[in-house]
Structures are given as structure tokens and as C-alpha cells.
Design a binder for these strands. Structure first.
Lengths: 337, 337
DNA sequence: CTGAAAGCGCTTACAG
DNA sequence: CTGAAAGCGCTTACAG
């Protein structure tokens, strides 16, 4: 494709040295005479020479790039995660090869395979509760890999995740402690592990209180499913005391439904979300939610990965971040902020 | 890094054929006897062989990856753009190498250089109005490149962008047509070309009406600067008739300030944004805004790029998308939705 | 249809 | 400090 790219040979010829010397000078090795180094750098600059990454990778056996494999490129979670990952990558001068497999195991398999020779390490987000085995089978064995939000435990790989069971438990308990008994839960995608854990937390907290009345509604983590769930609640009999949506986007959709119907939050019904996306504090009423440091999750995972690449013997223990409760107006009549 | 990766040699040895034959069989060339092809595929599969991308790239002179160079990885705009780009990339089995240069020209330069040998084409988002020259100097000449939201016109590169001047003009005219005269504009980052164009559209529309009273406030495209601007409006004298924020996030921040102060939208003041992010319709009141098809922008740009890579002689004309007005409750007392 | 060999553009022991 | 040469793992004319 590239038309007439300048190679290391051109630089060597122009500078009257061998390609080996050019390579050494450009890579900052110390065994190059100062005047020679200067000359080489000057010539390389004048010719606008840039090393060919594939060639360099092939001979040096390193790519300086990290593969980031995600189920999707869309939305707040991904955006935040990438921010954390990118911050670390950029600081250490690593490149990022980003691939989405669109939630499809076959594509995921292909994407993982295609990483060989392209990356020195792999960050994989695979939040499906049912494919631990699939992963164990398809993870490239030769590439250092760190997992995010993934059900594969007890393997050789470090896993970084959010303790969603604890988070949902905390939120539900808070709602119960506030005096609510009939609490509706809007769930996430069935296969999604985070969604499952949040549901489990909700159930466990509700089960611990004798007169609690749990209501469960389906959802898909997007605004519109929250909106749909809100409408469903409005239509079927008396409103519950509170709604706990498994993520903020659904909570916002639900809030919208309540707003349209003239149902006041929190006066008539309390509403809580999960994730603490930036917008949670800007809606009205501001949303009570569980704060999850997604960017930090990406940051930590990336740091761990770089460490493993740097030192194969590095301990590869993961980390489970515990989200914390952020109380805002949507669950209490008076502002505390 | 990779420990004991299987190479094409291993497959050749195991299948009792030459590496050339393995290569042909795996790449689907037709000059391979059927039984031989089958054998090779079977062996490759059994050995879990995956071609080394760098080696393949080096000899075939193609990487099957597109470099996406962005000023930032954060936020709705990026997320939407990536969705469009990824959709096309995925459908054509291309990989994406994503780099953020964090708004820093030096980093941008480095990132662009590092693309040689890594990608077959480049998608560059560089929304700074003042660095057309810098770009012309630093764009890799040997790599097909398509520009997004970039001030470099009249060059050899296709440019895909949003007609923000027309968009802001349309919104401002709509507000004027609704009877508003004192209209406040919350601007974006000074160096950002989109922000400049939106401001220019606002000014042009206001200048065309004799008794219009423009008010201009600074902003930074994020929620908090919108919030700050809203507070400023609340403190300084009488409220304007309407607020036009240069993007939705700022509009939401401003809305929040009004909500807190008990100022009702749209009864006491109209409010409009720009971008039509998914949340615009879920806030209360739903936000009037300019709908910009960001995903489509990414999609089109990516399609154009692939075409150019496929056929060097392809016409490389860009495209300017014109946003359209979406009227919701934030600028009118009664819902029309 | 198949193999031996050259070559892609680098890096890095190995000699000197 | 420097160069000649081997090698990274593939692909692809060139012969046969």
C-alpha cells in the first residue's frame, strides 16, 4: 500500500554507515560514537524516516501494543474503562489495539486469535456468566492476559472486577433502612454476569427482611428498557415504595416515565440506580446510585498487565473493587448534597 | 514474550509439506490439491496454529488494520463515532488501532508517526481550528488518510464533517422565530473548530435580527461548565428568554442549575442544546437540540477510507453532514412528542 | 499442484 | 565503536 516509504537502508546509505549503526543510534544504544549518532539522527529526520512497526516487531519480538478486547464499543461503561486504560497506556507509551466482538463468541474467538503478532498483552472484558469454559479454551496461551469482569476464576489469569453482589446488597439495604418495603428491581441482560450479581444482591437483601416485598422486572441496561419498566409499574396496580434499577441508564429511563406520568420522585416513589455515570448528578432529582470506579478498574488492570509483561514472574493477583453508596435526592425528600 | 508459539514451519513439518503450501492452503489460494488443503487445515487446527500478524504484514505489506487517531477517548461523541467506525470495520474484518493524543500536538505527531507498518489506512479526528498547517506537515504521506472534523481543506485528503455553522444558525433562528430575543449562548473550547462554527452560526443568526440581544458565555463542552454558566445567568440580572448551549452536556448542566434554583424550563426560560445525545430525550423536560449523526459520520468516513485502500484511484471526496432540528419540551410549554 | 529461495525491514549476537 | 550476517515468520514470484 505505502508508496515509496523510506527504510533504514536509505538512512544508512545517506549517512554512510551500516544499517546496524542506524538501528543502534535510533534506538538509543550506547555503543555509538557521538558524532555518528548525531549524523544519523539528522539524516533520519531530514528523510522523515519512521521505522516500520511490523518489521521491528518481527525481529524484536515485541509490539509495544496491548490488545483490548471488548463485547461492545458503545456506552458509558466502555468509555470510562477506556479512559482508565488509555491513561496508563499513554503514560508508558503503549499502543492500544481495540476490538469489539459484539457479544458473539465466534467473533470473540476470531478476535482473540488475530492478536498473535499484534500485541504483547491482552486485556479482555467478557462479562458473560456462562462462557468460562469457552474462555479457558480460547485464551491465547502465549500472550500475557488480564481479565476484566469475567467469570473465569482459579485460572492462571488475574481477574479485575466489581463486587456487584456487595453493591446491590448495600443499595437494597439502604432502601430497606429508609423504610421502603415494596421494592421493584429492574434487571439487566440475563447472560450478563454483572446483572446476575446485582440481582442476587437484591434478592439476598430482600430475603433477609421478613415483610419485604420484592418485585422483579426485566431490563437490558439501556434507557428504553428502563422506560418500559417504569411504564409497566405505572400500569399495574399500586406503585411500589421504591425502584432499584440495575444501572443508571435504566434508572434515567424509568425516571423519564415517572416524570411523564406526573409521579414525583422521591415524594411518591424513591428511585435508585447503579454505576454513578457522570449524568447521574445532573438529572433532576439527582440520582442515588452505587459509585463504581470503572476508570480505576481499567487503570488497575492495565497496570497489572504491564507488570506481567515486564516481569513474567510478577504476581498476577487481581482485584475486586467494592462500589460505594452515593445518596442523592432521588431517594430522599430533602437534598443532602 | 510469547513462549513457544507454533509457527508455519511446525505445521509444514507435521503435514509433510512445504511452508509455501501451508501458506497457500491457509490463505485459500486455489492452487492446492484438495486432500492437501484438508490435511493442512486439519493439522493447523490440531496444533492451534495462528499466523503471526507482524510477519504476515511485513511480507504481504498489508496489516488489515485501520488506525483511528483521536484527541480523546472520552465521552459521548467519541463513543458514537467509534460505533459507526467499528460497525464498518467489523463487517469487513478490519482491525482498529486506536490512539488518543490527548489534545497535544506533540503526542499527535508521535502517534501519527507510529502508525507506519501498523496500519493500512488512517482515520484522523483533529478538531482544532488552528493547526491546519501542522497537520499538512505531519500526515504520513504514504498512508491513505481520511479526516474527520478537521480544518484541512483543499488538500488531497477527504474530509468528513458536520456543518455546525448551518446547525447553529438553524437553532438560533428557531429560537428567534419562537419569539425569543435575549438569547444566551454557552460556547465550547476556544480552539475547537466545532465550537467556533457553532458560535459563528449563533452570531450570524442573531445579527440578522435587529432587536435581538445576544449574550455569550464561555464553556468547555462538559456538564460542569454548563452548570457554571447557568449559575452565572441566574446571578446577573434578569434571565434571558432562552439559552442555547453549544452542546447537550452543557445544556444538561445548565438545566441542573435552573432546576436547583427553581427556575422552570421552558415556562420561564427556554433551553436548547446541540448533538442529540441519547440522554437528551430522557431528561426532564426533554431537550430541544440539533441532531448530529455522529455514528453515521464515522461510518461514512470509514467506508470512504476502505474504498481508497481498495482502489488508489478512488475519488476521495468527503462529505458534510447537515444536522437537523429536534424540537422537544425544553423550548415549548406543551409537549409535541 | 508443489517446493526452494528470495525478500519484506528491522534487531542483535558475533567478530573485530 | 562498527559492520557483515543471521534471523524473526511469513508471502510470493519463479521453476518445474
Amino acid at each position: 500500500m505505502s508508496k515509496s516509504a523510506i527504510t533504514i537502508k536509505d538512512v544508512a546509505r545517506e549517512a554512510n554507515v551500516s544499517v546496524a549503526t542506524v538501528s543502534r543510534a535510533l534506538n538509543g544504544h550506547h555503543n555509538v560514537a557521538e558524532p555518528v549518532r548525531k549524523l544519523v539522527l539528522e539524516v533520519a529526520d531530514r528523510l522523515r524516516y519512521t521505522p516500520h512497526a511490523a518489521a521491528r516487531s518481527l525481529s524484536s519480538r515485541s509490539t509495544q501494543t496491548i490488545g483490548v478486547v471488548l463485547p461492545d464499543l458503545h456506552g458509558e461503561f466502555f468509555s470510562e474503562l477506556m479512559r482508565g486504560i488509555d491513561g496508563v497506556a499513554s503514560a508508558h507509551r503503549w499502543h492500544l489495539l481495540v476490538s469489539s466482538y459484539h457479544g458473539d463468541p465466534q467473533q470473540q474467538r476470531g478476535v482473540l486469535q488475530a492478536m498473535r503478532g499484534r500485541v504483547d498483552g491482552l486485556l479482555l472484558l467478557s462479562p458473560y456468566a456462562d462462557n468460562a469454559e469457552f474462555l479457558a479454551d480460547n485464551l491465547p496461551s502465549a500472550i500475557p492476559t488480564v481479565l476484566i469482569n469475567t467469570p473465569l476464576v482459579g485460572s492462571q489469569h488475574a481477574v479485575f472486577s466489581i463486587d456487584d453482589h456487595a453493591g446491590a446488597l448495600a443499595m437494597t439495604r439502604y432502601l430497606l433502612d429508609s423504610g421502603h418495603r415494596r421494592i421493584a428491581f429492574i434487571g439487566g441482560p440475563a447472560r450478563n454476569q454483572d446483572a446476575q450479581e446485582r440481582l442476587r444482591g437484591f434478592r439476598d437483601a430482600m430475603a433477609a427482611v421478613t415483610d419485604a416485598e420484592p418485585i422483579e422486572l426485566p431490563g437490558g441496561f439501556d434507557e428504553s428498557s428502563g422506560h418500559t419498566a417504569g411504564l409497566a409499574l405505572l400500569q399495574h396496580g399500586p406503585l411500589p415504595d421504591a425502584v432499584f434499577a440495575a444501572n443508571d441508564m435504566m434508572a434515567l429511563g424509568c425516571l423519564y416515565a415517572f416524570n411523564q406520568a406526573g409521579v414525583r420522585v422521591p415524594e411518591e416513589i424513591a428511585l435508585a440506580g447503579y454505576d454513578d455515570i457522570p449524568l447521574a448528578r445532573f438529572v433532576h432529582p439527582a440520582l442515588t446510585t452505587m459509585q463504581v470506579s470503572i476508570a480505576e478498574l481499567g487503570e488497575r488492570a492495565m497496570q497489572q498487565l504491564l507488570q506481567q509483561i515486564d516481569d513474567e514472574a510478577a504476581v498476577n493477583n487481581g482485584l475486586t473493587l467494592v462500589p460505594h453508596l452515593v445518596v442523592r435526592d432521588s431517594t430522599q425528600a430533602r437534598s443532602r448534597s
